[in-house]
Each structure stands twice: as C-alpha cells, then as structure tokens.
Design a protein around this nucleic acid. Structure first.
Lengths: 208, 208
DNA sequence: ACGAAACATGAATACTGATTCATGTTTCAT
DNA sequence: ATGAAACATGAATCAGTATTCATGTTTCGT
C-alpha cells in the first residue's frame, strides 16, 4: 500500500487543504509567514484575517483555501515553533557528552532562538488561551525529552539524584523566564552573561 | 489638606466609579468575583459582559456603573493578584533570617497560593496579551523585590555571588513553571515533594 | 417623611470581523 | 491546444457583543 490511498495520511489534523502546485505552495507559505508576523505583533484577537491576507499580499478569501479557520493557522504556528526549537536545541547539544555542558549549550541556543524569533515565542504563550491542546503538547513533548536526558545523566553519575520530572520543569522554567526577560522585558544583558550566571546557578546552586 | 479635595485620590487609574454605599460596595465585589471566575475559566475574549453579570446576578448595564470598560475589570484583577501574591509570600517568609530557608518557604507559599487561586494565575498570564502594562508591572515589581532580597543575602554571605537580576528571573521562572505544572498540567505530585526537589536544586545545583 | 444622589435595569445601538460564495484566472496533464 | 482541476478574488453575509441610554427603584442624610 505504500503511501496509502487517496488524500489520507493524516493521523492528527484535518488540514484546510494542502496545496497541489508550486503556486499554491508559495501562497500558503506567504500566508503562514504573514500570520506569524501579524499575530506575533498584534496578538491573536487583534490580528484579523484581513490584516494577515493584506500582509501576505493576497485576497481575503484566499486564506480559506489553505486554512479552515483562523484557529488553524495559529495551531500550525505553534507546531512549527515546537519543531524549530527542538531541532535547534538538539543541534546545539549534538555530541556533547556531559549533561551539564549540554545544559549550558542548550540554554544558550534557546535564548538565541527566542531572540531571533520573538513572534513565535509570544504565539506559544498565547496558545494557552487560544489552543490549549497545542500548548499542552508543546510543553509535554519538551518535558518528556528533558526527563529522558536527565534520567540518563543521573544514571551515568553526571548529576546528583533528584526527581527528574520536577527538575525538568524547573529547568524549563529558568529558560523560559530568561527568554522572556530578554524579549518581553527587553533586557540589555548579553546572552553570554545571562548563560554564565544561569549555568552557575543550575550547576552549583545558591549555597555559598 | 488630608484626604485632598473632591473625588481625587488617584495617581494611577481613573476608576469607573467607586461605590459610595454598602450596597454599591457589595455589587462591585460581586461583579469582580464573577469576572475572576468567568474570565479565569473561559479566557478574556470568550468571557462576555453578559456572562459576567449573569454570574454576578445583576443586569448587564450595572457593570458599567463600576467599570468603564471590560479591560478595566481585567486590569483590576491583575493588580489584585499582584497584591495577594506579594502579601502571601511576605507573610510566609516573615522573620526567616536565612535566605535559603526563606526561598523554600516562599516557594511553598506560592505553590499553595496558585493551587488555591488557579483563575487568578491564568489571568496574569493572559495579561501579556490583554493588558501588557499590567503584566509588566506585575513581574517587574516582583523582580525588584527579589533582587533586593538576593543582594542583601549575598552581602550577608548567605548565598554565593552572582548577578542578582538574572538569578531573580531564573528563580521566578522556577516558581512559575512549577505552579503551571501544578494547575495547567494538573500534576499529581504533592507540593511538599515538589518543594523539596526544587529547593535542593536551588541550593545545591545539579552537580554530583 | 422627603428629595436628591446612588444604584439598578435590560432593551437598543453600533460596530467588528470571521466565514461564505459566485465568479474569474492560471496551471498542467494529455 | 484544451478542458478540468487548482487557485484567486473581494463583496456580501451573519453573528456576537461591548457599550449606551431612558427609565425605574433604593438608600440615606436631614
């Protein structure tokens, strides 16, 4: 059966419509990119379909050729952010044996990513209210990976013992808060300084 | 001049209207409480004035006697959350000399608070999109207090040296993420367990 | 007891913006 | 070349809902 029959392949969503030609592909991408910029800047509710399509340079109706609803583009953006972040961090920590070193490199890569994609960051946050499922999946997927990594490191004796799940959430919280300080609160600090301080905290704690 | 002239007292907002009788006071409180529940449950945009007033048991127009706009109730809820959280934590850490002990007690108090007020927690998160100023003020006020505390502890030699601002954001991030795990992701863990694990991380870090 | 201020009502207003649709235009396999 | 499928258009539809307002009712100081 190979690729299976008909238009089927989807276990997850029912996409509005996948484009079938190069032109369609390009238009869909244009709309997605416009949605990222407009929703990131104005927020989900103030970003109208009209804004998005005019930013994309297409007519309003064109939107509905590729997306069933406004929520659907949004969900797709959240998924994209998830894939990109995981990919970025995986790449940055590739081949690093020591977990603590990986922790540092991963944090640095994450902060660089959010600085480069502030719109995507806000979109993920807003997903808690617009598409709770997508938000859930984003963080749970992330947390699962984190837990595995910590478990392995704990077994290898690279880090001390402790409940990995709580630790994973705490460490994700650090990364998220520092990213937010950077882009929402427009901190002037360099990423290098931030990472050094945070790494020291993560590795050694506050004890004198 | 004492209380100053006329209806003035406000340096900050221009409140829709302060009630002048006990009846008014009660009605305003009813609306505020209803807004907390309804907005917390449905989110800002899906929570209509009609929902809020019917939950409060008053007519729709009554809302506008006490609040100028829908945004105004929302902002007030964010302020309330800020005051309550700071008060709760201040109380819980009252008289604790050692900063690390205070850190632990504060985290525990915070988690208990968010478990008791999940609606308020969501409202603060949503403020990033509905009332960015309120969101900003909430976190900046918090961070400032945190920085002062850490600086004093550092000077007293209770904790190691390190950039207090980055540390403050990192620690706030831990608390926030663990609170979120608790109420958004409905973790089954007990607050005690969570606090123990997190405290160990904060005090000693991950190093074996 | 009484009148003015405060409080309460809920129907009417006014506007926004997501989604649909009837009608073209472009692409591409044959 | 040609017709069917894919793509594009933008005006019209349609529903929801924040806010206003004209009209009562209650409270409270005197």
């Amino acid at each position: 059966m190979g690729k299976s029959a008909g238009q089927a392949e989807a276990h997850r969503q029912a996409p509005g419509n996948q484009p079938k030609t190069a032109r369609g592909e390009a238009t869909r991408k244009a709309i997605l990119g416009a949605a990222e910029r407009v929703i990131g800047a104005k927020g989900y509710n103030d970003a109208s379909i009209g804004h998005i399509t005019s930013e994309a340079g297409v007519a309003q109706g064109t939107f509905y050729i590729y997306f069933k609803t406004k929520e659907e583009v949004f969900s797709e953006l959240v998924l994209e952010m998830g894939r990109l972040v995981r990919h970025t961090i995986a790449e940055a920590t590739q081949g690093i044996e020591n977990r603590l070193d990986a922790e540092k490199a991963g944090l640095q890569a994450f902060l660089e990513f959010v600085r480069a994609h502030p719109d995507l960051y806000r979109i993920v946050q807003e997903a808690l209210f617009v598409d709770p499922n997508a938000y859930h999946e984003y963080y749970v997927t992330f947390a699962d990976g984190y837990c595995s990594g910590l478990s392995a490191a704990e077994k290898a004796g690279q880090i001390s013992k402790g409940d990995v799940e709580t630790r994973a959430w705490a460490l994700m919280g650090i990364a998220r808060a520092l990213g937010e300080q950077l882009i929402v609160f427009k901190s002037e600090k360099s990423i290098g300084e931030i990472v050094d301080t945070a790494y020291d905290l993560i590795a050694n704690g506050l004890k004198p």
